[in-house]
Nucleic acid binder design. Structure first.
Length: 811
DNA sequence: GCTATCCACTAACCT
DNA sequence: AGTGGATAGC
């Protein structure tokens, strides 16, 4: 996909003398059969066929929203309403954008070249801003800063202002500024009453000035700048309005004010705006999303057609009913009634555990059993079919640890990003300085990495030099060397670095004239000045080698060093997929998704937020405990609306499941390193009991007394706390208790087996008093064990553990 | 200028 | 429990 082709097409089409798309007769002739319409239900079809004017598609979870959306695009193209590059279609994630592109392609046959304006809000805005950034003082090669850069920049500003960093932590300020930007507030528009005594806005204004000086912007700016540009340049806006004949928006409930304004500006003329969303799945309020946008749609776009998609094709009735029961606790909903034609299926399963490690162990065993087809009534599942969805990413650890131990293949999605690792960030900083010499932040990062003997003192000198001469740090460094401001080791080191940067920069410029493919003015005559053509991949290697960065890790003896070198190799290898370093840097800053789709099946571990839009046959939802889920922080900061957002998150979680959904909670969990007694989540109580099957935890009661840092003192064992106090008087808890106390025979056999004992004859086990032994027979939850040194004993299963784990016993 | 140690703070997450 | 910042000591 060529930027230049698009540009030409764009300029041609918006130029006054250019032909205005297709004529009516051409359009009519372009119309082709519409087989895709046959796959749609009535509501979907209505949403697809209502092409003119505003449409709000209220699409509940699993109701075929993406299908409707992609069919709509196909229909617009197929009926000749618009050409592929005249449709603006925005999503929130790259993944969603990619999927939509693929599916439109499938519907249309192969021929959907282009759709250059199908992408995330941010990628589309970058494209616009690269063209028109000059209207807000940005050159077209501006840098996009990530949060790390932003915080470092703000820290500098705070320090320069002489403000106490304790009172104004940079992180917090970054949050405040981001929130303003999400609401489309430039410094001038921030009202006094939320200006934090003037300090906040003042710093905000300074920050914006710094960004401009750095030829950089942050994520929020991408949207905000475009809104500003369109507001100040109606003529330009008008061109875009004419160009984008149809606008489609995915996940509309997640839009913030800036995104909303951008959309309204672009759609104001023809109002062919189709927004798709589900108010019950709005889970990004803390990031500035305004549910109000979707609740207000009909007011914003009078005469809007509202279509409700309510037939669910994903989940069983029990799962759907459980989710509906929970979400019913929220007020302020547009309201939808999901239904399904599917047969009943399994009840939603609920289980409580003693602590988070038991929870992880139990889930691991369930997964293994289901993957082995060892669950009667249930079909056999692949690991690919199963997912563990957590509220907070730190919950993932327990599962990773456990799965590593038992050798269960898993994949963590949305964990620490590849490009966010130290070595990748360093390498990228080098590339940035080379490609964009004004990028002071990147310069600061690399000036003493690897160690060159250039410490804070030398850096300060360079900064002073740069500031007094009004130049970038790189130029400041050059001057500082020339003027003799730097001495000794620092002087030589800085001089060398600057010379290297120049040299790499030259190489970069040469290779940039060989984008190959689509730049028809590829400069052939420069060949004679560049005898050996250098690809950007080779250039990257050279930068890392000549700077000494690779050597630094080679000489590093810490255990992480080899891994880091591996990552650097990966990074360089990944460059191959981009046309040049510019393209690469752009994708990095817009966070290219890195989930390599390896072939072998794995269980997916991810956050609830990350799971939105996905579905799995089997879903585990651990950690449903007060304080964790709903998150205490959310409730503290946003009160009732925070709680309602958490509840929507619960709804999202349950509705990810197609066939089997298992919710669990632990009674004990360390919070900030302190063990805490946890109460089951109120959401557990909100699930209608008709749709729940309460399972019995495997290990009831304290296990090996006293091992857990003074925690397991008997009093806090599961059973003893059952006896205690009103806090466990919630309906959900009582239900759990009832089941636990019922005769074992009353429980479904399939589940009982796992719940009571996971040991089989021949297993090696370990007991705290009797040591190692072998299981001779199994009777319910009682085991007969032949101990190596203590003879034969009959014991309750919960008092022994598999021998394989005994190595982490403290003796 | 660099490294080692202590201390205070913190967990949501997409671009 | 893990991390980053501040400080002291080499």
């Amino acid at each position: 996909m060529s930027r230049f082709d698009e540009e030409d097409a764009f300029e041609a089409a918006v130029a006054p003398q250019a032909p205005q798309g297709l004529s009516n007769s051409q359009r009519a002739m372009a119309a082709r059969p519409t087989p895709y319409l046959d796959q749609l239900n009535d509501a979907q079809r209505e949403a697809v066929e209502t092409m003119d004017g505003p449409v709000l598609m209220l699409a509940g979870a699993g109701t075929g929203k993406t299908k409707a959306l992609t069919c709509r695009i196909a229909h617009l193209l197929n009926t000749g309403r618009a050409r592929p590059n005249e449709i603006l279609a925005v999503t929130f994630t790259n993944k969603a954008a990619r999927e939509m592109k693929e599916r439109v392609g499938d519907l249309m046959g192969t021929s959907v070249a282009g759709m250059p304006w199908l992408g995330t809000f941010h990628s589309v805005c970058v494209k616009q801003l690269r063209r028109h950034g000059d209207l807000v003082g940005l050159k077209s090669n501006f840098t996009i800063l990530d949060t790390d850069d932003v915080i470092r920049l703000l820290k500098q500003l705070i320090k320069a202002e002489g403000i106490d960093e304790k009172r104004w932590p940079a992180r917090q300020l970054a949050g405040v500024i981001d929130a303003w930007k999400n609401r489309a507030l430039t410094p001038a528009k921030v009202t006094d009453d939320e200006a934090f005594n003037g300090y906040g806005v003042k710093l905000y204004a300074q920050y914006q000035n710094r960004l401009k000086a750095l030829n950089a912007c942050d994520f929020g700016d991408l949207l905000l700048h475009m809104v500003t540009i369109f507001q100040n340049h109606p003529d330009l806006l008008e061109q875009y309005q004419r160009w984008y004949k149809y606008i489609l928006v995915d996940e509309y409930q997640d839009t913030n004010v800036a995104q909303y304004m951008w959309l309204r500006l672009l759609g104001a003329a023809h109002k062919n705006v189709c927004c798709v969303g589900d108010d019950d799945q709005s889970i990004y309020g803390w990031r500035g999303a305004e549910v109000g946008n979707i609740l207000r749609f009909e007011k914003d776009f009078p005469g809007a057609k509202v279509v409700r998609l309510e037939q669910n094709y994903r989940s069983t009735p029990h799962i759907l009913a459980a989710a509906s029961g929970v979400i019913a606790g929220n007020s302020n909903r547009l309201g939808k009634d999901l239904w399904t034609a599917e047969p009943e299926g399994e009840l939603v399963r609920l289980i409580g555990h003693h602590d988070y490690e038991d929870e992880a162990r139990w889930i691991g065993e369930e997964i293994e059993a289901m993957a082995g087809g060892a669950r009667a009534r249930l079909r056999k599942f692949s690991l690919e079919d199963m997912a563990i969805l957590v509220r907070a990413s730190h919950q993932m650890r327990a599962f990773e640890d456990r799965f590593l131990k038992i050798g269960l293949a898993y994949r963590v999605i949305g964990g620490p990003k590849f490009y966010e690792r130290l070595e990748c960030r360093d390498a990228i900083a080098y590339f940035r300085v080379v490609m964009q010499p004004e990028d002071d932040l990147a310069f600061e990062r690399i000036i003493n990495t690897p160690k060159r003997g250039v410490g804070p003192k030398a850096l300060l000198d360079i900064q002073t030099m740069a500031r007094t001469n009004g130049v970038s740090l790189k130029e400041g460094a050059r001057l500082a060397v020339q003027e003799g401001l730097l001495k000794g080791k620092a002087k030589g080191a800085v001089a060398e670095l600057v010379a290297q940067l120049d040299a790499w920069g030259n190489l970069a410029e040469q290779q940039i004239r060989y984008p190959g493919l689509d730049d028809d003015e590829a400069v052939v005559e420069s060949v004679d000045c560049v005898p050996a053509e250098i690809t950007h991949v080779e250039l990257a290697e050279r930068i890392l080698d000549e700077s000494g960065y690779t050597t630094m890790w080679q000489n590093d003896k810490t255990p992480e060093a080899p891994g880091r070198l591996e990552n650097l190799k990966e990074l360089v290898k990944g460059l191959d997929e981009h046309d040049n370093l510019h393209g690469f840097l752009e994708n990095v800053s817009l966070s290219l998704d890195n989930d390599a789709n390896e072939a072998d099946p794995k269980v997916t571990i991810m956050t609830l937020h990350g799971a939105k839009g996905l579905e799995f046959p089997v879903v585990f939802l651990p950690g449903w405990e007060e304080g964790l889920f709903p998150s205490q922080r959310s409730m503290d900061e946003s009160g009732l609306s925070g709680l309602e957002e958490e509840r929507r998150l619960a709804y999202v979680g349950i509705t990810r499941a197609e066939e089997l959904c298992t919710i669990s909670f632990a009674s004990n969990r360390p919070v900030f390193g302190q063990w805490q007694t946890q109460m089951p989540s109120r959401f557990v109580d909100e699930i209608p009991s008709d749709h729940i099957d309460v399972l019995t935890p495997q290990a009831v009661g304290g296990r090996y007394g006293g091992q857990r840092g003074g925690f397991d003192d008997g009093f806090s064992s599961f059973e003893s706390r059952m006896a205690d106090a009103d806090v466990y008087n919630s309906p959900g808890w009582r239900r759990l208790q009832d089941r636990a106390n019922r005769a074992p025979a009353a429980k479904p056999v399939t589940l009982n087996m796992a719940a009571v004992s996971s040991f089989t004859i021949g297993d090696r086990v370990f007991h705290i008093k009797f040591g190692y032994g072998e299981v001779m027979s199994v009777d319910g939850d009682k085991l007969t064990i032949e101990f190596d040194h203590a003879g034969s004993k009959k014991l309750v299963a919960s008092f022994v553990k598999p021998a394989a784990q005994a190595d982490d016993a403290p003796f």
